[in-house]
Structure formats: structure tokens, C-alpha cells
Nucleic acid binder design. Structure first.
Lengths: 284, 284
DNA sequence: GTCTGTGAATGCCTTCACAGCG
DNA sequence: CGCTGTGAAGGCATTCACAGAC
């Protein structure tokens, strides 16, 4: 999403996803600006796939491919061609019957639809392992997502530049986000601080949040949250392993080696919460 | 949804998601073992949420809460109570009418359903930032996901222990996975090597893969893949920013500052591919 | 003939609403 | 009377299948 969805969407939802996210539809707005309102009409699931098509198309462009059919593109993106055509139809008719799509045109239209023609300044909160990675990644700024602010709680980290940007203290989230016009906040903190951080980001004018902390964030309805939860992903995989084993004959009920995780339910209390797959995201 | 999601992914998401993932239903199998076949019947989206409920329930247990109603649990998990009850109904009837659910019982049943009563040895491939984080995270082994193998291409890393486990060379994936009975493979490499790595994991007997590389992996149908794609997540958020701005009056068409990302379609070629949000996952 | 674009059909998931148990 | 469990209804998303442009 999401899978997870995404979902949600779920994901995911995906998706998966699928994955995550809660659309919250407002049926009060009447159809008026037609063309402008089009965005509204694109299903969440389709939006997620458009991003995938965009990546594939970029790859094709790099190989100097100028034209592609729905079948080729669909295969490369891992979907069937009917779905792909329907997805593309939401953003308009840019193909040529009997031929296919022009790669450059399609890239342009998808970028426009996804709002990638505009800069989206990003703030990363929680400069642990993942935070570091995000801050250092050069592909972000070049793709329209400049990382413009970093935050952490640790005084030892404050003012230390990571990926060229000095880390600010969490207490300054609101004012720094306001100043630097941050639109997207990435929460890479442990579970405990996440809601607090989220509140501050929202107070600082951030309307979109990507949450790696294993908590369900409470936000006003005009704020969009997407969640990436490794614990959930692992457990979904676990479910599929289990299912497959059941199917493949009850005989295969091998408990691997006696090493049980402890009687579920009453079981041995585990250090703490899968909670933090996000602990993994903590200080290195 | 991420949500995987997909999304499933999404939604997701997704699924979800939402996200990600492709169920691939086989309608040939006839209903026979009823109870055993139950797992089959649980919707993918519900499985993702069960993992969320499990986390919330663990939190409640830690606070010594012994009983919880569908309403309380639903609120804490960020879903509505009808959905939660339906999800729980897929795994059986463990509530008490007029009262609610016993926390311990529910935890046990969800763990059983998700196959968490069994160990799932994990291999992490690509010991960059994210790989490091995963290898170091103590919550994995304690929750039934022992990280039992690490792989990287870099000779400088081979034999260096990370999180207590020495890194093996990518060339040895097949035999090491066989030996250590790895069931879940996590791909945290850049895009280029991902398919190759995936093939080796599969050859080594891995049936479930969590993929962080921005590529659509090709796998046999008996292998389950979940994808986590930051690029997609960011772009979905971007879409929502764009949509919101359109809604909030056309006037607000502020291009922030003239800094465009370059004419989409024909645009300035960007370093390379959002491709690797995964670059972020590369060597620190 | 090829391949896109799209109404119509199908199937999945969510939501409703209430019967039934404690 | 409260809260669970669940059939039935409704809403989305995917898939089908074909008309129409090239």
C-alpha cells in the first residue's frame, strides 16, 4: 500500500497498502470547475500506480525510448494493461490509437497530475539511521523534494550539519517550518514522541506527513498522513508464510526448532513492542 | 500504503495501498479443511489491520488493561468499530457481548492467525543505512523475526559483524539462506542489483520478500512480495498538496518561488531517477 | 489490423443496521 | 441495556470487452 496501501492504502494499501491513509470525502462540494475538479476524481489506488508508471517511463526515456504501448508499460510496471489504460484515462487521453503513448508526453502529464511541477520542501524529524539516510539522499532535492529542515531532540546533534543542513531542535519545529515553507513532514522518531512532533508540524503549517513511527497519528482532517510500518509489513509476510504452510499439507507443521516465541497471549513479555521497528530508526 | 501499501499498498496503502502485492487467487482449490482454510478467507486488507490491532493491544496489556470494547480498540487503531468487529470476526468469536474483548485472548488469537507463534528467520541484503538499522534493531529477534543473515556486495563489509552478525557476500546468498533456513528476505539494495538479489533469495528457499528497491520484482507465483517505496509515498503526498491547492481557490496557484523543477516532459534531466529514494538506502 | 479509451459487469471491501447474547 | 457478531446494502476498484481512431 500497502501494502499497503497502500491501501491502502494499504495502502496499501498498498494498497495496500492497501496500505494506509484516510481519504475523508466531502460530498458537499458541487461539481463546478470540471477540469480543476478532475484531480478529485482520480482513485487513490490509481494515484499510487501513476507514480510507478512515472518511474518506469523515466527509465525508458533514459534509454531513449520515445514510444510505448499500454501492454509494454503495464508489464514493466507489474500491472495488467486494462488497469493501466484506465489509470491513464483519469488524467486524460494522451495516447495514439494503434500506436501507443509518447514517453515524454506521458511523463509530463503524470508529473503535472501528481503536482511534481512544484517544489515541496521537506522536513525530516528524528535524525537517526533513517533520518540520516533521508537527509543525505541527493535524489530528493533533484526530484522536487528539497530537504529544507532537520530536527532532533538530542542537543549533541543540534547544529551539526547532516547532508548540508544543520539539525534544529525539536522545540523550534513550528517557527522553522513556517519560515522555510515546509509542506511535507517526515516523522522518523520512535513511537513515544511522534504525536507531539506531528502536532508541532501541523502547527507549523505542514499539511502532509509521512509517518514511520508505529503509532496512529491524530490530525485535523485537512492534513494528509501516509504511514510506513515495517512491523506490519513483516507480520503480513508472516501471515502468508503461515497460510502457505497450512495449504502445503498439515504435515509441514514444523515448528522450525523448538524455539517458540513464548506462549502467545500470556507469553513472555518481549523487550518492548514490535512497537519500534522504529527503534531501528533510532540513533545509530 | 501504503498502503503496500501496495497497495497495496495501500490503501493502503495500501493498501495499501494500498498499497502493493498481488494476491493471485486460485479458485481451483475446493473447500475442504474448513478450519485450516480459514486463513485463506481473511481479506488482505484485514490482515494488515490485524497487525495494527495487535500493536495497540500490546500497548494496552503493558498498561495492565485486561478488557477492551470494539469502540475503544477501534478508536485507538484509527478505524471505525464496525470494521474492527468484522476484521475480528474473520479470526473467530472471542468477544463477550455486553462487555468486550479480553486483551490477552485477542493478542493470542491474532498472533496465531498471523503466524507469529513461529520463528521467521530474516536475511537483510544491502548493508547501507537502512540495512544497518534493520540489523541492529533488537526488537526484531524478540518478536519472532531473528535477523539471521546479512549480505552485501562490498568486500570491505564482508565478515564485519553488524548487530552481532557477520556480513556475508552476496554470492553466498543461496547457500547461506539454505543453511540458516531463511524465510523472509529484505532487499535494501539500490535498484540495479535488486532483481538479481531477489532471484538468489528465491533460489535459496526464501518465500517472502520485503522490497525497498524501486523496481518491480519478477518472482514465481509462490513467492510473496511486499514493496515499500518512498518515492511513491512522497509523490502521493505531493498529489494531495496539489489537489488541496486547486480546491482552495485557483488564486493560490503560487509557484512558491520561481524555482521550477524544469519543464516536465521535456524537462531538464534530473541526476538519476527518483529511482533511488533507495540511493538513500545505500552506503552511509 | 493494432492499440487506445471507456461503458458495463464483476468482485472486493466497507458500512449499515440489527438480531442475539450476556 | 450494552456490545458483539453478521447478513445485507452500498461504494470502489478491477476486469472485461468492444467501439472507434489510426
Amino acid at each position: 500500500m500497502t501494502a499497503h496501501g497502500e491501501d491502502v492504502r494499504d495502502g496499501d494499501g498498498r494498497a495496500e497498502s492497501d496500505s494506509p491513509s484516510e481519504p475523508a470525502s466531502s460530498p458537499e462540494t458541487i461539481e463546478v470547475p470540471a477540469a480543476r475538479e478532475r484531480a478529485r476524481a482520480i482513485p487513490e489506488a490509481a494515484v499510487a500506480r501513476l507514480a510507478v508508471y512515472l518511474r518506469v517511463l523515466s527509465g525508458l526515456r533514459d534509454q531513449d525510448v520515445t514510444t510505448v504501448s499500454s501492454d509494454e508499460l503495464a508489464t514493466a510496471a507489474g500491472v495488467n494493461s486494462a488497469k493501466l489504460r484506465k489509470d491513464l484515462s483519469y488524467i486524460g487521453s494522451y495516447g495514439t490509437r494503434g500506436v501507443g503513448y509518447e514517453v515524454a508526453v506521458l511523463i509530463g502529464q503524470i508529473e503535472r497530475t501528481l503536482g511534481l511541477t512544484r517544489k515541496h520542501s521537506v522536513a525530516v524529524v528524528g535524525i537517526g539511521n533513517l533520518g540520516h539516510a533521508l537527509a543525505n539522499y541527493g535524489g530528493f532535492p533533484s526530484r522536487g523534494f528539497p530537504v529544507a529542515a532537520l530536527f532532533d531532540l538530542d542537543p549533541d546533534l543540534v547544529d551539526v550539519p547532516v547532508g548540508g543542513i544543520p539539525v534544529s531542535h525539536i522545540d523550534d519545529i513550528v517557527e522553522v517550518c513556517r519560515e522555510r515553507e515546509i509542506t511535507i513532514g517526515v516523522i522518523a522518531t520512535p513511537a513515544q514522541g511522534a504525536q507531539e512532533v506531528c502536532d508541532r508540524l501541523v502547527a507549523g503549517g505542514v499539511t502532509c506527513i509521512l509517518n514511520f513511527a508505529p503509532v496512529v497519528l491524530q490530525v485535523p482532517e485537512d492534513v494528509e498522513v501516509r504511514k510506513v510500518d515495517l512491523a506490519v509489513e513483516m507480520q503480513i509476510l508472516s501471515f502468508h508464510v503461515a497460510r502457505r504452510q497450512q495449504e502445503a499439507g498439515v504435515a509441514g507443521e514444523s515448528e522450525v526448532d523448538g524455539a517458540d516465541i513464548g506462549p502467545p497471549g500470556t507469553g513472555v513479555r518481549v523487550p518492548d513492542e514490535f512497537d519500534s521497528v522504529n527503534g531501528m530508526v533510532e540513533r545509530l
